[in-house]
Design a protein around this nucleic acid. Sequence first.
RNA 1: UGACCCGUGGUCGAAUUGGCAAGACGUCGGGUUCUGGCCCCGAAGGCUCCAGGUUCGAACCCUGGCGGGUCAACCA
Length: 744
Amino acid sequence: MAEHDSSNFIREIIKSDLASGKWDRVQTRFPPEPNGYLHLGHAKAICVDFGMAEKFDGVCNLRFDDTNPVAEDEEFVRAIEEDVRWLGFAWGNVFHASDYFGKLYAIAESLVERGLAYVDEQSLEEMRASRGTVTEPGTNSPFRDRSPAENLRLLREMKAGKHADGTMVLRAKIDMASDNMMLRDPLMYRIRHIEHHRVGKDWCIYPMYDYAHGLSDALEGVTHSICTLEFDNNRAVYDWLVDKAGYAEPRTRQYEMARLKLQHVMLSKRRLKKLVVDGLVDGWDDPRMPTISGMRRLGIRPEAIRSFVERTGVARADSLVSRDLWESIIREDFNTVAPRRMAVVDPLEVEISNWEGDTEWLDADDWPRDVPKESSRKIPFSKRLYIERGDFSADPPKKWRRLAPGVEVRLRYGYLVTCDEVITDESGKVTKLVCSYDPATRGGDAPDGRKVGGTLHWVSADEAIDREVRLYKPLFTVDVPDAEEDWEAVIDAASRTIVTAKLEPSLKEATANDRFQFERLGYFAPDGDDPKVFHRTVELKSGWNKKPAAAPTRTKPVVQEAVVADYRPTDAASAARFDELVGAGVSEPIAGVLATDADLDALVQEAAKHGAPPVPLANFAVSEVGPRGDRGKLTAKSLADLVSLADSDAINSGAAKKVLDILIANGGEAQAVVDAHGLGQISDTGALAAMVAEVLAQFPDRVAAYKGGRKGLKGFFVGQIMQRTRGTANPQLVQSLLAESLDV
RNA sequence: UGACCCGUGGUCGAAUUGGCAAGACGUCGGGUUCUGGCCCCGAAGGCUCCAGGUUCGAACCCUGGCGGGUCAACCA
């Protein structure tokens, strides 16, 4: 398949971590919980986790997050390993969170000893109530301030099995009033007197996801821990735990990407399970299921899934990928690997009236001319044939290119035939066609060079084999079944139709790994368990009779009231300062920020005393100093000098930013930094004019494009000059020189 | 009603880190064709959510708004 290698934010992060020397290796992990089968969403995670490791010569481990023994099972472990292998990835190691139960527990004791965790005996309800809501802070548990010694004793009792399920938990002591609910003393351990599928009865307390996950990453030496967006809020806990456990930089970091969502596909694990349990589908590997095993059974190849993930990308924006793309990639994958065959799914008998004698075996190519492969097979032609019922019309519409009364068409690799007679039953249904063939057109070409409207697929009635063929539509009728409250109501009862089709005899020996294109019908795959059954993996694209074109909903003219923003703060003191700034000529948005950021404003007021011009100072402080957060070694004096320098055109705005970064990092004096780094502005007209001429000579095509109307290119030319001067050219001057040369 | 995340042609998404708004799918038109597939050529489709600000220059930085998502399991 085509190689697609688009950039994405995680790749960029890894690349820069490697470039900066933060890491000299890459280690990721795929951490499924063994409580169900993997689906398309996991497939994306697998492709990204393993793909990143692959791309950067790192390692990706498989780690089973088996922290909740009530739902987990060995059966799923094996299935997951099989699915990952099938997708074509190789892990470095197989780990289990349960491997770390001992170490995790030791860390928990250490946290307790340091007063960072406590045993809570509130009931579930009490805990829920004291957690607060998203808008109200929580309240501390009455057990929060126990001594470390008591907590340690209780924790050991919990571990020793002295307490019943649900009577107590271990909690991290963070902040019950945090805006981030995840930080309101998250649970670390709960009591479960239940056997674990791997460690048996060794433990009766089990770690929670949040506690186990980040520490497992740290324990394993993971460098980049990739998960989905809904764990965004959990990252704070992740970082807290890894820090408190004593991992210093560089240490594992969590990065979140958007989940994969595909039109008409439901990926809720719980709901998928219900489909299986309730018998709404045939099992986890029903070809209509978005599970990896279901897709495999449908005939989709891992290459297609990997390509799909690569092409839909990795980003942080929620999105819904269209089915068109999905199907197009499956077709692209099949096109060069699936030999062509003929099959009739809805047979209509055709009698060749002038056919004399026996069956004739004709050559048929396995591949169309655009696929660079050569091979062929024999197909039988005889007096009785089947064509597709839909390929005949007694009363054809315009542009009909198939069979109709009196019309001649080509039977692919066979003969040209003409429909002479239509036989119907008493209800008017067509039961048989009587056609005549032209013996001179053997193989499908007319010696006289005459053209026919269309080419049909067909099979010979006597030699054709009967096979069960299953045709599919999406399981759900709506775009986003996951969003549906009553999702069972949107299941498409007609998502699968089973027919007995007539296949050309060469298909008799089809085996599970074969893929075929049944010409004009789609791509098909024999069933893995019973290769006598064929699944239609995907239909061919059809320019004819296509689905009602999704009317491109014109962009809504977002009529938004032009709200005049009020930047004036409400409290008196800030408002006074705001008025003062505005009075001095500072714009309202800038004044608003300064008036409410006491820290920044103090710096500005101090800098003003060193003679910096007030308006540029305010602008620079709010636009550049504020966003940088930590002010490091920047002093009011150096800031004032910097602003003055920029204001006097001694340096340009880009250089000012560079100087600012240096002042923050290293301190020093503005002018000295400018001198040391050669950041003084170049305003030498002669030198710049020469450079302009040079750039224009280097890009004649772009000059032409500019003169042809692409005025946006001006920025490109300016950019070129700025690059050559390391950002120190006087941009206004450059622009006017450019204008002189270009706009004449 | 709080915190956090996210808004780029119909869809998914790039944009060398502030300097030419890529590409793919889809759509439309044409070519080719023994598959109404594939392939080839061409086209349409953008106030980069909105309003301000900063800057020589903003999809990108700042402020405010609008819209979507996530979070109040002893699940992961």
